[in-house]
């Protein structure tokens, strides 16, 4: 995946079955963000792989004050890339869904 400066990792072991997974997001390289970033730390959240949209979660992070509106796309893309990788791994390992 492209290096967006925003890192998203699994925050739990993926058993390949759960539709809702725990993720952890943090800024690795603030220079890649357009807006000024205040260092808040890592943000842990849950994400439903079947129902949720990464860009909506990114918007909620903006509204919660973690990022500025100008960076909503980069945050959304970072989450989307990680979610795509998780889904791809599940298909590859033959997990249900």
């Amino acid at each position: 995946a492209e290096d967006t400066g925003v890192r998203v990792e699994l925050n739990e072991e993926d058993d390949g079955k759960k539709s809702t997974i725990a993720l952890k997001l943090w800024v690795e390289d603030p220079k890649k963000l357009k807006g000024k970033y205040k260092d808040t730390g890592a943000i842990e959240f849950t994400f439903n792989l079947e129902k949720e949209v990464p860009e909506v979660v990114a918007q909620e992070m903006v509204e919660s004050g973690f990022f500025l509106e100008c960076d909503v796309k980069i945050v959304g893309k970072s989450i989307r890339d990680r979610v795509a990788l998780i889904k791809w791994r599940r298909v590859r390992t033959g997990s249900p869904n």
């Binding site: 390289d29 730390g41 890592a42 842990e44 909620e60 973690f66």
Partner: peptide, 27 residues
């Protein structure tokens, strides 16, 4: 370690925790 919690109006819970050790690029 210090953690805090932010709940968005849509109901999603964000837990803020320290960034994992050694996971920041040089600034």
């Amino acid at each position: 370690s210090a953690t805090s919690q932010v709940v968005h109006s849509a109901g999603r819970r964000f837990i803020v925790s320290p960034v994992p050790e050694g996971r920041l690029k040089d600034q």
